[in-house]
Design a protein around this nucleic acid. Structure first.
Lengths: 330, 330
DNA sequence: CTGAAAGCGCTTACAG
DNA sequence: CTGAAAGCGCTTACAG
């Protein structure tokens, strides 16, 4: 049975309050007393209960991280960024998956709040945005990635996805492609919109027509990418290049090309998005838009800590840059 | 400001105890009273504080998960298994990385215990085992993956790594290889030992000599695999096949072969371990030993829940099977 | 520089 | 079927 503040106080021959003072080193305590208390703490192996402390201070040194799916190669790096900054600052973090389901997001946020987390970092779905203010009303600071929301207690970090899409498609155009299809995602509507807009902007900027039927939306996983590419390239054989919502879809598209006997990039160039860890390991190595996932995670957690330190502070959105990485597939 | 038990009691015109009873639906409460309480709860949006409850019951409905590195493609799938079972059973989970550093493991476990987690799931380093009993002494059930420890309060789940290594190397021998090198890991000594033993057993079982100098140990990441293979194949050009500690090292070895102008598998066959998600996406697709990472995670969390339900129960070790997956690289 | 009392929001015996 | 009291392990004003 672990020692309590009382036990320490008794052993050191001081009051509970005095022990509390040295544990949280607040106010002045005589050097002599302090040492006696410290000795008692060491002797008893005393550890303050975060539960008890949290009950009165409303701070638990915990945060919640809600992401789409830790299995999606985009997220582990992001999570690592969050976890590293959290650990360095004395926070433990609850990790949860939403799978893009807003009802599950709400249940999860509620559960985290029940545990009295200090704040939450989330990749919100589109539908969640109507519910976020209510949840934010609980007084918990929230950092939202990629959602153009704006109100007190919520801070946002935006990935420059539209820019990324423009870079990708412009690269294809510069390589001489004029018939460029797109395999768009389907799970995160706002993200999807951004990337589709970037795609269209690049085409228009070069006087190329937009063929709506060349844009197909599927869940952003490999197998769906394969099928979508198969369909697109069969139905519109004039297409010579593909821009995809993410790298997983791009990998699927490469498979489709192989099945169709189209060489990549000679017969069909492909550009992905995200630059997941193995993008440079596949064959052909993926040309893609790099997103600094680890840095983004760090940014998010640092921002949350800042918000915790200044509850009434003003926190402008942060925009995270992207970069085209040219490899073999385009 | 959120409602408390008291608020609910006041509104329903009953005592705090009665509200507590309906919240935890224990004992009999008259249907009439129960409904009044339920109405009050709904009206006030009351949510019980897990902190306050935990302080008295010593249960928080939280668990800690300590893994090597969420960025290592082995772990996200495992984590997903843990998280899914946890969520289905009302647990939230703290996720932490140890990077194979035992002092960090201890700090992390201590921090989790400070937060009063109900239990811990961990991939312990070799060095940690001396400290685990002490930590387990805190009365928290622990599920340890791949560590042959045995004492009350600790449950273990073992991956049949030695068997897996034997399968891999036997496959190479059956393909006609007699000069088989091994790139062993360096971070998790026990795991390493198991896989090296399996490698040697397979050789001996077929009357092949063990060349200790053909076994090289490096940190289990891609770049190290590349360098190790480069060195091994240059120094001992007679080697025609490589078995690696994990898939990351195997991917590195493939790179080395490409650099040396050796075709895979014709000039050098390669077998990895783990079957990470993109093992079938690389070129050549990796022949490897499949580990059911997701199932393992589920198993671990289920076991922890069982232990929580039966603190004095007897929990025999669980052995998780492996399977050779033959693709292109060997 | 130090301490006694109240309270954070629950549950647990103990009564009735 | 229902309730009053004590306590889980801390911190927060308030005194001295």
């Amino acid at each position: 049975v672990p020692a309590t503040l009382r036990d320490v106080a008794r052993r050191a021959g001081v009051s509970v309050k005095t022990v509390s003072r040295v544990v949280n080193n607040q106010a002045e305590v005589s050097e002599d007393t302090r040492q006696r208390v410290l000795d008692a703490i060491a002797a008893l192996g005393y550890r303050p209960s975060k539960l008890a402390r949290g009950l009165v201070t409303q701070r638990t040194d915990t945060v919640g991280l809600i992401l789409g799916d830790i299995n999606n190669p985009f997220f582990p790096e992001f999570a690592r960024g969050v976890l590293d900054v959290a650990e360095a600052n004395g926070y433990d973090v609850f990790v949860c998956n939403s799978d893009g389901d807003w009802q599950r997001e709400i249940r999860t946020m509620q559960s985290l709040i029940d545990h009295a987390v200090d704040g939450i970092i989330i990749f919100p779905t589109f539908e969640l945005q109507n519910h976020l203010p209510m949840l934010a009303g609980q007084g918990k600071p929230i950092v939202a990635i990629n959602r153009p929301l704006q109100y007190p207690g919520l801070s946002r970090i935006m990935i420059r996805s539209r820019l990324g899409a423009r870079l990708a498609v412009t690269h294809l155009i510069n390589k001489g492609h004029t018939a460029i299809g797109m395999i768009a995602g389907q799970a995160w509507p706002v993200e999807r919109l951004e990337r589709v807009q970037g795609y269209m902007e690049a085409l228009r900027a070069h006087g190329l027509p937009v063929h709506r039927e060349w844009i197909v939306s599927v869940p952003p996983v490999l197998e769906q990418g394969r099928q979508a590419a198969l369909q697109l390239l069969s139905q519109y054989p004039e297409i010579t290049a593909l821009f995809t919502y993410n790298d997983l879809l791009a990998l699927g598209a490469i498979r489709a090309c192989q099945a169709l006997g189209r060489r990549v990039p000679e017969d069909c160039a492909i550009v992905g998005f995200d630059n997941i860890p193995l993008a440079d390991q596949v064959f052909p190595a993926l040309t893609t838009v790099h997103v600094d996932k680890y840095g983004l995670g760090q940014l998010a957690m640092r921002r949350l800590i800042e918000m915790l330190a200044a509850p009434d502070g003003d926190f402008p959105p942060i925009h995270s840059d992207v970069e085209l990485v040219v490899r073999q597939s385009a």
